[in-house]
Design a protein around this nucleic acid. Structure first.
Lengths: 139, 139
DNA sequence: CCTAACCTTAAAGTAAACTTTAAGGTCAAG
DNA sequence: CTTGACCTTAAAGTTTACTTTAAGGTTAGG
């Protein structure tokens, strides 16, 4: 499989695949007599894992450390799982913060909708937000 | 509150806060007679939302479009509530995105942990990735 | 008054992750 | 045997998201 075909199948530009090779994310693979890269099916899966990891917030450097040493079938399973679990913990922490933000916003909306007309609603909102911040520190 | 204090409280560098102002993510705020920026408590909230959204994978451009228009002078109560409600919707979008990320990560972890020591990691990875692709298309 | 720690600006620099360009070699079809 | 779609490389360019630098003004403490 030449680079163009791999590019079409994976949805990545050939330049990007060559870039990943230069960066050591995928190994330097076999070349034909003409010097063309010849890819195996495995490479496509590696590319998909790279993209997935990127979408999960991993940098290329992190991904490089997480992928198996090139040519070896044995992938450091423990290392990979540990990294992924770490990421899950980070994402969960983010989720909690977002839930707090959302609860806060909904409380603010309720308070503002309950205020009588005529007041300075912006200062009101500021005060409500300040209260919420203090509350969340206390809670 | 001067920029240094806001920087310490938010954990962002002053240069980064000025950068966000230049980029229109936070409004140009009041200045003292000396020309120093004077921030209100609300700005810190906005900065936290920016950072959270970034961590969820939004670009600054996307974040700029999801934040309410700044310039508090013409914020009526209705507009304020509408903005806040809009923000709740966007936070929910962040939540969904995080949930997808987390589900993806957990699926991958489960699959990897279920692989027998000598098994072919790539065949398993392919199935997991196929599942994830279908999920993201459906979602 | 002096010093250090703030603040201001515009402009230049940086790092990550690619893409584009330039200059060329290879290959299948007509 | 030429045309066009591939492939190769090195190097330069791009975008995003900042930080650093340069050159200066302000403010609090000894």
């Amino acid at each position: 499989m030449k680079i163009g075909e791999l590019a079409r199948e994976s949805g990545l530009a050939p330049s990007r695949i060559r870039f990943y090779e230069r960066e050591g994310l995928i190994g330097s693979i076999d070349r034909g007599l003409n010097g063309y890269r010849q890819y195996s099916r495995e490479t496509r899966q590696v590319l998909e894992i790279i993209v997935m990891a990127q979408q999960a917030g991993f940098s290329l450097e992190e991904i490089r450390n997480l992928l198996p040493p090139h040519g070896k079938a044995d992938w450091s399973k423990d290392k990979l799982v540990a990294s992924l679990k770490n990421k899950v913990i980070e994402v969960a922490a983010l989720q909690r913060r977002l839930s707090e933000t959302q609860a806060g916003l909904e409380a603010v909306i309720a308070r503002i909708e309950a205020t009588p007309p005529g007041g300075d609603c912006f200062e009101n909102a500021e005060a409500v937000l300040a209260d919420l911040r203090d509350q969340s520190k206390a809670g």
